[in-house]
């Protein structure tokens, strides 16, 4: 019934508006004006609106930066992450300059040259020198961006060193499993046909290099200052291993193994003392307290970042960056998957 009333109200509203527009048009026609013709007043008013918009837009931009600067690009906790951030800010600086200048020119010209009763446009069809300038300048700037970007990309994607700790990140709907390569730092073979209830990643018991591999489900531990190489796989659909604080992201693709490596630089303990993190946790906990939820403690997170099904938004694993001693102690407690029970 309510639904019906709402529909009726909508129909009535449309009819009312239609009649109002009609009345305005007729009234204006009676006054002898051609109500719908775009006049000098429109040019002036819309021109001024352009200028007002420019001011509002730039203020909005500045306000957003001030408001959110403590949230964006949280402290990078890996070696290459810091380099990414540097380049990110460098490029952001460049594009901000372009964004601001071009928008100012656009809206300012729109305002300045609105049509007056006696104004005339200048006939200017082209100017080769000017056009050369805005072809060459962007080309040079882009060359710099490309060179800096590719240099960093090559560093990040170059093969991990032999000493890197090899860890497999195994994705399935909707959780992550980590397999550590154990003392030999070599992952044993696996095959999806060997998957069963207990053997979640399909490990092959016949491969000796897998004998010391151990599997964890809830928390991924890594030592600070050591290079880690992630071998990423998926069991069902495409997932993506996304660890925003480490500036790491790589898809998990069924049927192939992808990899990405990094060296964490900040332990979880240290990160919890970071001033942005402290403030963030405080804000989150105020919200949670108001809803009667448990307080939150900061942790690094591995999230899924490729649409993978209904619970895509709830597919995470906690990442703990330990000191070397903590890490060694943790590893010592883990049992190989094929250990005699």
């Amino acid at each position: 019934m309510i639904t019906l009333l709402v529909y009726a109200a909508i129909v009535l509203l449309i009819v009312t508006v239609a009649q109002l527009v009609r009345v305005f048009e007729l009234a204006s026609d009676l006054k002898g004006g051609r109500s719908n013709e775009v006049t000098y007043r429109d040019h002036r008013n819309q021109g001024r609106m352009m200028f007002a918009f420019l001011i509002a837009f730039m203020s909005f931009f500045v306000w957003q930066i001030v408001e959110y600067k403590g949230y964006i690009l949280p402290e990078a906790a890996s070696v290459h992450g810091k380099e990414i951030d540097w380049l990110m800010w460098f490029n952001m600086g460049l594009i901000t300059i372009v964004f601001v200048i071009v928008n100012i020119l656009l809206f300012y010209f729109a305002y300045k040259y609105y049509s007056r009763p006696d104004s005339k446009a200048v006939f200017l069809a082209h100017n080769n020198r000017l056009e050369m300038v805005w072809t060459v300048v962007p080309a040079v700037v882009l060359a710099v961006i490309i060179v800096l970007g590719l240099r960093l990309w090559n560093t990040i994607t170059s093969d991990a060193s032999d000493k890197a700790i090899v860890i497999e990140l195994y994705a399935k709907q909707f959780d992550w499993t980590a397999r550590y390569s154990g003392k030999d730092n070599k992952l044993g073979h696996s095959n999806y046909k060997l998957i069963d209830g207990a053997n979640a990643v399909g490990m092959d018991s016949l491969d000796p290099s897998g004998a010391d591999d151990f599997v964890v489900h809830n928390e991924l531990h890594i030592p600070v200052g050591k290079e880690v190489e992630f071998k990423i796989r998926s069991r069902d659909v495409i997932h993506s291993a996304f660890m925003p604080h480490f500036r790491i992201q790589m898809n998990a693709v069924p049927g192939m193994t992808t990899s990405m490596s990094m060296t964490p630089t900040i332990t979880t303990e240290e990160m919890r003392k970071n001033k942005d993190v402290v403030r963030q946790v405080k804000e989150v906990n105020e919200i949670r307290a108001s809803k009667g939820e448990d307080p939150y403690e900061f942790n690094f997170l591995l999230m899924c970042n490729k649409i993978c099904g209904a619970s895509h938004s709830n597919m995470q694993m906690t990442v703990v960056v330990d000191t070397q001693e903590q890490y060694d102690a943790w590893v010592a407690k883990q049992k190989p998957f094929f250990a005699k029970k």
């Binding site: 775009v38 819309q46 020119l105 656009l106 010209f109 040259y113 049509s115 007056r116 446009a121 200048v122």
Partner: peptide, 11 residues
């Protein structure tokens, strides 16, 4: 943008 410059803009 240069097209707008010194134009006689009808809004």
């Amino acid at each position: 943008i240069t097209t707008l410059w010194k134009g006689n803009i009808k809004f």
